[in-house]
Design a protein around this nucleic acid. Structure first.
Lengths: 261, 261
DNA sequence: CAAAGTTGGTTCATTATTTGAACCGTTGGT
DNA sequence: ACCAACGGTTCAAATAATGAACCAACTTTG
């Protein structure tokens, strides 16, 4: 692995639950020597991607990411374009809707919207990285991305999150066949217990799958009626977002989604 | 310079005017060998900080920066906190207001708000990097940051943007004395011709200067009355933002700003 | 109050990684 | 059919990354 990758991996150590990380702790989490870790952090800091805070000198995510994100949205306004659709989807299904996009070899959750009424709901971490093999979003993405990428992802060690998590690559591959046949992916408690979700793939202008749109509900609320509603609304919303992004839906998939309505 | 820095420098090549950059062009701009540049870009791409687009395979900023920015704002909600103040400032002065923060060794413009009425106004590039020595924001920041940082910045080669740009480190240093005496920095056409701006420094919880708040007007509109208005509104707004950020204003500066009102 | 265990940060010889000139295979223009 | 420019690849040479040991400062603990 290159030095740059090691440095960038450090950025993924941060989370909302763990916003501040000290040097020693950082080195431990990243499996790096303290000296190496320090030098990498210093370089990240020189570019504002990381900053040191307070008297404890712990590290946290820096201000440069905001500037870069402003620029990215100015160039490719995907989040802004998708948000209204996401809100409408959460509204009509009355469940949590979220949108994830491929980021290199990871699947990053870009935005989420909660439904307004239910007291119980599926909650999301800010800016979470989702496992491909254990979420409906991941499965939808894998099912429609190119084979080489799929192979790379599935050849990694697949962690078991719940008793229901599938961790065998061949079994998962067979499941993806079903996803392609359905035009939609499903996950029952494979990442978090008691969460039942559906996801539809999203495509860019070149027809590449670049992410997924998903709706997640508590298992206890997932009736046949809700499933049908989600299926219809999800595919329509996904088609809308793809259109807003200037993307192109693979023709067979467009037909499948049409049939569902 | 370390490999990581070279990779991160590539990210700063993008701008709104230049959102897509091909491999060869990239190598030229960054002064790197094509092979080196390629490997760095590939590593950035693996982490989603950069992505390739369309049939020309040009590179652009990737989706991961959005996720990181979401996380950063969830941890340190500075932009969100400052925006209302920025809007009010643009409204009362009827000129362009903008906010910049230190990002490693650069000064990044985080947000800007245009005034609503005037037909002519100072326009801003999205997510621009500002030169310390040629902008009021930069001077305000330099005047109140720690000496070591100031020395590092001023020892770089200082580019001349207009005939009025000061490029001599010692002369600039003398100018910073005046900024400290005034509690506010001024710039007359030193970065862009016909732009006259004022800036006030911003501080974090540890009393470190972390950026600046500025108001920029076309030189033709800068009357004594407007200058006085800006001086009052700018310092009050800066104090507000520092308070919202949980920061602490150096006591002498707080007194100076108070006197101005 | 001092000893032991933290922490962030530094050093320098060893080593593995980065580097870049030259080289493909395609694409698009003339 | 030619040429030029592009993205991407190769491999020996060179440079930059690495990590065990080491500080100094700060907390915890006996």
């Amino acid at each position: 692995m290159g030095t740059v990758s090691k440095a960038l991996d450090l950025l993924d150590c941060f989370s909302k639950a763990q916003p501040l990380i000290g040097l020693t702790e950082f080195a431990r989490r990243a499996g790096l020597n303290k000296a190496t870790c320090f030098r990498l952090l210093t370089e990240l800091q020189d570019h504002g991607l990381v900053e040191q805070t307070g008297p404890a000198r712990e590290y946290r995510l820096g201000p440069a990411v905001l500037r870069l994100a402003n620029l990215r949205e100015a160039i490719v306004p995907r989040k802004e374009a998708a948000l209204p659709v996401l809100r409408a989807l959460a509204q009509t299904t009355q469940e949590t809707a979220h949108l994830s996009v491929i980021e290199g070899e990871k699947l990053g959750m870009l935005a989420y919207v909660y439904a307004s009424t239910h007291a119980t709901r599926v909650t999301m971490e800010d800016a979470e990285v989702l496992p491909f093999h254990a979420t409906s979003s991941g499965l939808a993405t894998l099912a429609f991305c190119d084979a080489g990428y799929r192979d790379r992802i599935l050849s990694q060690t697949l962690r078991r999150y719940t008793p229901s998590t599938g961790t065998d690559a061949d079994t998962l591959r067979a499941g993806l066949q079903k996803v392609r046949a359905d035009g939609i992916a499903e996950s029952k408690s494979t990442y978090e217990a008691e969460v039942h979700s559906f996801a539809a793939p999203l495509f860019d202008a070149s027809g590449q799958c670049v992410g997924a749109l998903a709706v997640a509900a508590p298992s206890s609320r997932m009736t046949a009626a809700l499933r049908d509603l989600i299926r219809i609304e999800l595919t329509q919303s996904a088609a809308q977002i793809v259109a807003l992004w200037g993307g192109t839906l693979p023709t067979p998939l467009a037909a499948q989604w049409q049939r569902a309505v």
